[in-house]
Design a protein around this nucleic acid. Structure first.
Length: 502
RNA sequence: GGGGAUAUCGUCUAGAGGUUAGGACGAGGGAUUUUCAGUCCUUAAGCCGGGGUUCGAUUCCCCGUAUCCCUACCA
């Protein structure tokens, strides 16, 4: 039987990287084994505020972003759907009834208040909290009385009072759970919606899931689900509980840890292959290969459950940034340039794209003035970029006003505009640049070198003031390339502006 | 309170009953260079504690400790 795995998020808000890693592991296993990867929407929690319908679209968007298209799912279709749990209510109801009829589950009429009181008393007495099974053995008369009262009910799983459930986890080995210690879990809520335990078990079976790869937080619920498989007479899938991803405070990754939403990583300009590579390494390793940079095909080739760690991993933004920088440098410059363009436009450095009604002439002008310039300028900063959104900071000076009247770094000015030879140097430099027949990086370099010779300076003495005068900063790409990219017009305008004030 | 999981450099991890405990990020140093970045070289940094088992444990077992997860009509 071919491997079938699923990622089953609930639409409770913006998807974050923890879920994404789970999805990636599932996807990787499916690719490796030539199986199917399904995505199912677990929207059984209708609590206002918790149910966020739009997040289904965010989820979909993140699959597009990382390029992991499900073989089946709520937005791709498939033969065992629907893949949205709220559309499968009758199925769950049927199984709930069956379980009650067979005595493996029972109706519980307890009110929230009663449950609450019970819990308070347990806590007060220092007892373990949990449902005390008070409605497990109701007589038909008692049930009828509750019904007559108009009380609603839930369906609870009747856990065996003795024995153990043994989970054979693919990552952690054998784990035993005492049945008597398990709660009689609610399977069907009073609003008719199933809980995770019922819905997930039923769907995984009906959808022929062979491997359940999910977060470690589900480990304690395993015995209940195993019990369901048993009483329903279904074969259990293989289970693998993945270690959680935690923040630097060692707590499970959550909103308070800052930017953990996938959307944020997209917006900041993380390349999908970098995020994927990084996330996969958070809890998985290729053994003694001593490598950490892998392409997607290489990951697929090497992936196996055996390589998954058992201990929680701290999400290290620094390493992610390093990796993203690496992938940016590895990429075709054209791709990076294209991806940078939206940031430049958003920052107002480059005008928005022309409307489709623009004339060919206008389009050509836009291309020459803006797109060609962007293509010339962005590559100079690629090796300095850790995230794409930094591009606006990095290349900003290229787009400032012609004579660049504002924005000089204070320290840079203090250090390099105070040198005694500044004015004569600028005068010579300006004259030489004006006279230059062809504006190339090589020619610019020659001029600066001859300037060094005639003035009896070191190269650095000329380079630094020139850099500050033309870029406003002390750091950046090589000066000759920078001046070339800037263009003679801008360079001269900026040099003259400084000269006049010197 | 109960249940479960986990424990190797600051972080991600490799590893094996006997190794100089390996790699990566980050940090320090150096080289390259007009700065930064990049690249290359390099240094420091680790087996939670206590018992066993064993000729020998960081590795296997037990206990402790610590951390995390679950303990909802949330997933």
């Amino acid at each position: 039987m071919s491997v079938r795995v699923r990622y089953a998020p609930s639409p409770t808000g913006s998807p974050h990287v923890g879920g994404l890693r789970t999805a990636i592991y599932n996807w990787l296993l499916a690719q490796k084994e030539g199986g199917q990867f399904l995505v199912r929407l677990e929207d059984t929690d209708r609590t206002p505020g918790r149910y966020v319908p739009e997040s289904a679209y965010d989820l979909e968007e993140s699959f597009h972003y990382v390029g992991m298209m499900p073989d089946e799912g709520w937005f791709t279709g498939g033969s065992v759907g629907p893949y949205v749990q709220s559309q499968r209510l009758r199925i769950y109801l049927g199984y709930a009834d069956k379980l009650v009829a067979e005595g493996h589950a029972y109706r519980c009429y307890c009110t929230r208040e009663e449950l609450d009181t019970m819990r308070q008393e347990q806590i007060a007495k220092g007892l373990p909290t949990g449902y005390d099974r008070r409605h497990r053995y109701l007589t038909p008369e008692q049930r009828a009385a509750f019904e007559a009262e108009g009380r609603s009910h839930v369906v609870r799983l009747a856990m065996p009072l003795e024995g153990v459930q043994i989970l054979h986890d693919e990552i952690r080995g054998e784990i035993q759970f005492e049945n008597s210690l398990q709660d009689d879990q609610v399977l069907l809520k009073s609003d008719g919606f199933p809980t995770y335990f019922l819905a997930c078990t039923v769907d995984d079976h009906l959808m022929k899931i062979t491997h359940v790869l999910r977060g470690e937080e589900w480990l304690p619920s395993a015995p209940k689900m195993l019990q369901l498989y048993d009483v329903l007479g279904w074969e259990r899938p293989k289970f693998a509980h993945l270690p959680v991803i935690v923040g630097t405070d060692k707590k499970k990754l959550a909103k308070r840890h800052g930017d953990t939403q996938i959307r944020t990583f997209m917006e900041q300009g993380y390349l999908p292959e970098a995020l994927i590579n990084f996330l996969v390494l958070l809890g998985w390793s290729a053994g003694d290969e001593n490598r950490e940079l892998f392409t997607i095909p290489e990951l697929i080739e090497r992936f196996s459950l055996a390589g998954i760690a058992e201990s929680p991993a701290v999400f290290d933004y620094e390493k992610l940034k390093w990796m993203n920088g690496h992938y940016i440098r590895q990429s075709e410059p054209g791709r990076i340039i294209g991806m940078c363009l939206p940031y430049l436009r958003k920052a107002g450095l480059v005008p928005e794209a022309l409307p489709s009604t623009a004339t060919d002439q206008e389009k050509e002008a836009y291309r020459v003035e803006w797109l060609d310039y962007v293509r010339r300028v962005v590559p100079l900063e690629i090796e300095r970029m850790k995230v794409l959104s930094e591009v606006t900071e990095l290349v900003g000076f290229f787009f400032q006003k012609m004579d660049y009247p504002i924005g000089y770094e204070e320290k840079a000015v203090a250090k390099w505009f105070g040198v005694s030879y500044l004015k004569p140097m600028l005068a010579q430099e300006i004259a030489a640049f004006e006279a230059l027949p062809e504006w190339t990086a090589q020619n610019v370099e020659q001029i600066l070198h001859s300037l060094v010779d005639t003035m009896g300076l070191k190269l650095a003495d000329v380079v630094h003031p020139t850099r500050v005068a033309t870029t406003g900063r002390t750091v950046g790409p090589g000066l000759f390339e920078t001046l070339h990219a800037l263009g003679r017009e801008r360079v001269l305008a900026r040099l003259r502006a400084v000269y006049e004030r010197a």
